[in-house]
């Protein structure tokens, strides 16, 4: 069994109002030295397969087709064994 761990975040060029608000809030709490905060999504997809190459191809396609919107978002993923 393989599990894909996928991160979807807003592209660097796109302003992230949630990240900006979080940054401000954490600074109010006293945390210093924060350069930037970006928020995104974390998605896990489990496969009943051990064929890394085939799964990777599928995950990449899923990311482009539905899991991310290429107009505003970028994605990255890694595969690991097991759940």
């Amino acid at each position: 069994m393989l599990t894909a761990e996928i991160h979807v975040t807003l592209k660097e060029l796109v302003l992230d109002p949630q990240g900006t608000t979080l940054k401000r809030s954490m600074e109010t709490m006293g945390y210093q030295g924060i350069e930037e905060v970006r928020m995104g999504k974390f998605i896990q997809v489990r496969f009943d397969s051990d064929d890394r190459q085939a799964v990777e191809k599928k995950v990449d396609e899923m990311c482009r087709q539905i899991l991310s919107n290429p107009v505003i978002e970028q994605y990255s993923y890694s595969l690991r064994e097991g759940r």
Binding site: V14, P17, Q18, N69, V71, I72
Partner: peptide, 17 residues
């Protein structure tokens, strides 16, 4: 319509969240 590609662009969360 934006997601389906019939129109270009995308929607972000409102500026004031």
């Amino acid at each position: 319509l934006l997601e389906s590609g019939l129109l270009p662009g995308a929607m972000l969360v409102n500026r004031n969240l």
